[in-house]
Amino acid sequence: MKETEISKHTISVLVDNEAGVLARVIGLFSGRGYNIESLTVAEVDASSHQSRITVVTSGTPMVIEQIKAQLSRLVPVHKVSDLTLAGPCVERELALVKVIASGEKRVESLRIADIFKARAVDATNSSFVFEIIGSPEKIDAFIKLMEPLGLSETSRTGVAAISRGTLTM
């Protein structure tokens, strides 16, 4: 890869679930001028109080290496793994998409939701809330199609990711 080429990386970080840990990670990105495209966090192991943070970021290979090194040296960080480099991985995101429409547009939105395997989790006479799960690209595509059909609000979780196969962090 060229030194100046910017690429997108999904990085998983296992941290102690303690006060301020998310602020440390976010502060590191903002303080050093790194880019955050998406960030998710939740406790994944209650017994050991560990949370998993998934950050989607982009940068040159040198910047990505820096990001990982900087994350690794934070005291509450146990492990940092670059899923993009580690091999194939599954990336999933959930979005809730509100469409307010009537008539033909309303019908069309339902049809598209069906194609995307999105579920209507709320409905009124003039609106739907669709739940869609998939790769960020799939969700982007879905939202784009909903735009002319009365898209009024979206809420996205950000990416959760994990390696395929037997590989673990």
Binding site: E3, M62, E65, A69, S72, R73
Partner: peptide, 11 residues
């Protein structure tokens, strides 16, 4: 001793 010092400014 600090991994993040390596390749930070100069590869």
């Amino acid at each position: 001793i600090d991994q993040s010092s390596i390749n930070k400014n100069v590869p």
